[in-house]
């Protein structure tokens, strides 16, 4: 099956700043693809190149089988976009803006529009300048979700939405996937990505550092195990893949690399286990693992910079 989005070795610079440095990304049709990374990693630049408002310096980009720059207009009939910071025309109402976007895209289902306004609790009679940030976001979401797009490009789409609306959003995205649409979801809300994404790509410094299903990514990192045992568990510390073993109130606790989990659990079984919990890493831990050296590097950089 042809991927909905296929990016190979994408480069983009703004002056001397390298925003994208050999980014690769492949999104399968019908998937919700999570796109994660720290601020300034290149997520929005990638999405803007996919939209055809920025031009790639080098690399191959295919979007729904077309070129996002040359075939922009034709492709845009089949996709919808929600930016993270929605600006509306101050003197047009939200309803006018939604209708306008729908018509510019080539038609929409009016009943679906009304239903979405209802679900997102949006008042379409207010002027653009009177909306709060969350409500401007709702205007963009309603106009994107009301159309029959094959592909949704969402760049931090729920920034500023309350938890109730977040739940409505997740429901809508599940429906969109149910209808066979593809979603590229850039987000900082990890619970949202964990709940929705079939696959996840982590971007850092303008390139993808990891990509896969959440299960695959979890396998790459450590599981935290807590156990109460009859036998002495301290020599577990010597096993390959075991980290940070410590004893707290008669319980042992350690992290184990995904690759060595099976062996360690076998060993643990011999130790007369009374109680055992093992939880996989959260997405937050996954991310911290990838951004962790970033933090260390900036910390180190600052320290180096402060030396005369």
């Amino acid at each position: 099956m042809t991927p909905a989005i296929e990016i190979h070795d994408l480069h983009k610079s703004f002056g001397k700043v390298k925003a994208l440095d050999g980014l690769d990304l492949s999104v399968q049709p019908g998937h919700v693809h999570g796109f994660l990374g720290p601020n300034g990693a290149g997520k929005s630049t990638t999405i803007r190149i996919l939209l055809g408002v920025l031009r790639a310096d080098a690399g191959r980009v295919r979007l729904l089988g077309g070129d996002p720059w040359d075939d922009a207009v034709g492709l845009h009939r089949r996709m919808a976009y929600v930016p993270g910071d929605v600006e509306l025309w101050p003197n047009l109402t939200g309803g006018e803006a939604i209708d306008l976007f729908a018509r510019l895209r080539g038609g929409t289902d009016a009943s679906r529009r009304d239903e979405l306004c209802e679900r997102f609790d949006l008042d379409p009679t207010k002027k653009g300048r009177t909306y709060s940030k969350g409500n401007r976001q709702k205007v963009a979401l309603v106009s994107a979700l009301a159309c029959d797009a094959d592909l949704l490009l969402l760049d931090e789409p729920t920034a500023g939405l309350d938890p109730l609306m977040e739940a409505v959003f997740q429901e809508c995205i599940r429906e969109a996937r149910g209808a066979g649409r593809t979603v590229l979801l850039s987000s900082h809300i990890l619970a949202q990505v964990e709940a929705l994404a079939d696959r996840v790509s982590i971007v850092r410094g303008g390139r993808i550092v990891e990509t896969g299903t959440l299960t695959e990514l979890r396998h790459l990192t450590r599981t935290t195990v807590t156990a109460t045992t009859g036998g002495d568990a301290r020599d577990l510390a010597g096993l390959p893949g075991v980290h940070d073993l410590r004893t707290e109130n008669g319980r042992i606790r350690f992290d184990v690399d995904g690759d060595h989990l099976a062996a360690v659990v076998r060993r643990l079984g011999e130790l007369d286990v009374h109680a055992l919990t093992a939880h996989p890493p959260t997405l937050e831990q996954l991310l911290l693992r990838y951004y962790g050296d970033d933090l260390a590097r900036t910390g180190g950089g600052a320290a180096a910079g402060s030396r005369p």
């Binding site: 939209l51 207009v73 845009h76 976009y81 910071d85 976007f101 895209r105």
Partner: peptide, 17 residues
């Protein structure tokens, strides 16, 4: 500059249009 052109160009409106 205010970011209002981008969502319009994200629909089937061409640059020239």
């Amino acid at each position: 500059a205010a970011g209002r052109t981008e969502p319009v160009l994200a629909t089937s409106v061409s640059r020239t249009g």
